[in-house]
Design a protein around this nucleic acid. Structure first.
Length: 261
DNA sequence: TTACGGAATT
DNA sequence: CAATTCCGTA
């Protein structure tokens, strides 16, 4: 049944746009889209960020403390289904998605917020590159400059996270007796700081056009992109995925298997 | 059950 | 490659 038009588009251009403004405040030739054509596929963290930025997806994944980059997986089954759809991995499931998330631990991008089921924290993300950028390609490492210096800057400072995510209700408020088990090295961010940090978001960073950009977006550089409907067909069987997929949102399926290699 | 990470594979 | 898949461990 094809008809279902789960729109598939991508946060890719949003991210591209955002990262672009971080890098080159102005004079940079590569415009947001020039890169899209060379990219292979969406990275998991980009996917997560995209959903995290969408207020309509809070039933699936949501910030619990955006300033600190802390988020919670609310419906991992659905999230996995979505991820599998985007990556064209029909067999993707909750456990595998979580395993993929764990691979980010070693790269220092994420950590688990202990004591809170399904809660993780972004520690850093590649802000200057959307993926296959020069530095990352040549260094082959994630430890060099393309990442945020571990230090003080919060993700928001880089505008990597847009600033208008309105609020997430203080999720663990009251009950977080333990809250501070996380820690090891990071400052202790108990999840319930959210409230406080909420007001620090300014809505004036000028970035908005989200709705527009969520409209379909085609990734092909050579017309190889399959029609979204076509792709979608394989998944429509049992997906209540669509129920969670906001209409204005769109992902672009990666042609992972087709491109590259 | 959730969470972790080695190892092989794509 | 950046996950994906499978699995033993805690």
């Amino acid at each position: 049944m094809s008809g279902q038009e789960l729109k598939i588009a991508t946060q890719l251009d949003i991210l591209t746009f955002q990262t672009a403004r971080v890098n080159d405040g102005s004079a940079s030739r590569k415009k947001s889209h020039s890169r899209s054509s060379t990219r292979k596929s969406l990275y998991l963290w980009e996917f997560l960020f995209g959903l995290l930025e969408d207020e309509e997806c809070t039933s699936v994944i949501t910030w619990t403390n955006k300033r600190e980059g802390i988020f919670e997986l609310k419906n991992t089954e659905e999230l996995a289904k979505l991820w599998g759809t985007v990556k064209n991995r029909p067999r993707m499931d909750k456990s595998k998605l979580i395993r993929a998330i764990r691979t980010y631990y070693e790269r220092g991008m994420l950590r688990k917020v202990k004591g809170h089921k399904g809660v993780y924290q972004f520690l850093s993300i590649p802000y200057r590159t959307k993926g296959y950028d020069h530095e990352m390609m040549t260094t082959g490492t994630f430890t060099s400059s393309p990442f945020l210096g571990s230090s003080e800057r919060s993700l928001v400072d880089f505008n990597v996270i847009t600033s208008d995510c309105s609020d997430r209700q203080p999720y663990y408020r009251g009950t977080t007796a333990d809250g501070r088990d996380n820690t090891e090295n990071n400052r202790d961010i108990s999840v319930d700081d959210c409230k406080q940090t909420e007001d620090t978001f300014d809505k004036s960073n000028g970035y908005c056009s989200r709705e527009k950009r969520w409209s379909d977006y085609s990734l092909s550089s050579d017309g190889s992109t399959k029609s979204l409907d076509e792709r979608q067909g394989d998944f429509n069987t049992n997906t209540d995925t669509r129920n969670h997929m906001p209409e204005h949102m769109a992902f672009v399926f990666n042609d992972d298997d087709n491109v590259c290699r």
